[in-house]
Computed example of a mutant assay.
Amino acid sequence: MTSPEGRVLPVVTAPAAVLSAVGDEVDPTAPEIVQLAADLVATMKVSPGCVGLAAPQVGIGVQVFAVDVTGHPKAVTTHGTFVLCNAKIVEASRWKAGREGCMSVPDLTGDVKRAGRVVVEAVLPGSGDPITVTTDAFEARALQHEIDHCAGKLFLDRVAGAHAIYQRKVYL
């Protein structure tokens, strides 16, 4: 199966309603989901510093997201660029706080406690094949962040309080 050409989509920002709604599960073999997967990757690749992008962030309330932490200084394990549908965390351990940002909350970052090791079960777009991803460190954080988007949660919903939210630094 050939992949469609990805289109760059506009990213929605909080308080857009789609960001706080639980996304629908999808049929990963549906042509519109295969196209969405390509669009998420294309949009992520043109967005500086972006290591993950979920469908709700482009205004589509479904459980599909792309991740690629390749080359990020905090990455330990990396599986390259991949897209998952209907992802669920089945194991989580080694909890640790870390700083997160988000394209849908462009002016803020926050300290979020997340698992440093996760096992995620999902389905691949296009083939519909089930997959299990076991990862750690920054890639595990990115997966949890994107799964949260699909569940209608932003990183701001996971911070310990206002003391753990920071104005994003702007580098000129």
Rank of each mutant, 00 (worst) to 15 (best):
T77W: 01
D68M: 04
V76I: 14
V64K: 07
D27A: 13
V46K: 13
I33G: 05
P73D: 14
P10R: 10
D24S: 15
V64F: 07
P15K: 02
A66T: 12
G61I: 02
V67C: 14
A75R: 12
A66R: 09
T77G: 01
L9S: 04
M44Q: 15
D68Q: 08
D39S: 06
M44L: 15
H79W: 04
F65Y: 13
P73F: 13
V22K: 15
L9Q: 09
V69N: 09
T70M: 04
P31F: 01
Q63T: 05
T78Q: 13
V26M: 12
A16H: 15
P48Y: 13
V18H: 08
G49D: 08
A21Q: 15
D27W: 05
D68V: 05
D39P: 13
V34I: 13
H79C: 03
A14R: 13
A30F: 10
V41E: 08
P56K: 05
Q35T: 11
P73H: 14
V22M: 13
A75E: 12
D27M: 14
I60D: 00
A17W: 00
V46C: 10
P56T: 07
G71P: 10
V67I: 14
G49S: 02
V18P: 01
V64E: 04
H79S: 10
S47D: 07
V26Q: 07
G23K: 03
A55E: 09
T70D: 14
V62S: 03
P73N: 10
H79G: 12
A66E: 13
T70H: 01
Q57N: 09
H72S: 10
E25C: 14
L40S: 02
S20L: 01
G61D: 01
P10K: 05
P10H: 06
D68C: 05
V69S: 11
T13I: 14
E32L: 05
K74R: 15
G71K: 04
V69A: 12
A38W: 07
I60C: 02
G59Y: 02
T70S: 15
G23T: 09
V12S: 09
L36H: 04
A14Q: 13
F65A: 12
A75K: 13
H79V: 01
G49V: 11
V11D: 02
V26K: 07
V67L: 10
T70P: 02
V76Y: 07
A75I: 10
V76R: 14
T29P: 07
I33W: 00
A21P: 02
V67W: 07
I60G: 02
A16Y: 08
A17C: 00
A14T: 11
Q63G: 00
Q35R: 15
V64C: 06
L40Q: 05
G59M: 03
E32P: 02
P48N: 11
P56D: 03
V18I: 09
A14P: 00
P73I: 12
L9G: 03
S20G: 14
A17V: 14
V41L: 13
L9A: 04
G59I: 04
T77R: 13
Q57H: 08
V11H: 01
H79T: 02
S47H: 11
A75H: 06
A14C: 01
A16S: 12
E25M: 12
P48G: 10
T13W: 03
D24M: 06
F65D: 00
A55K: 08
S47P: 00
L40T: 06
V67N: 12
L9M: 12
V41R: 05
A55G: 08
Q63E: 06
T43N: 08
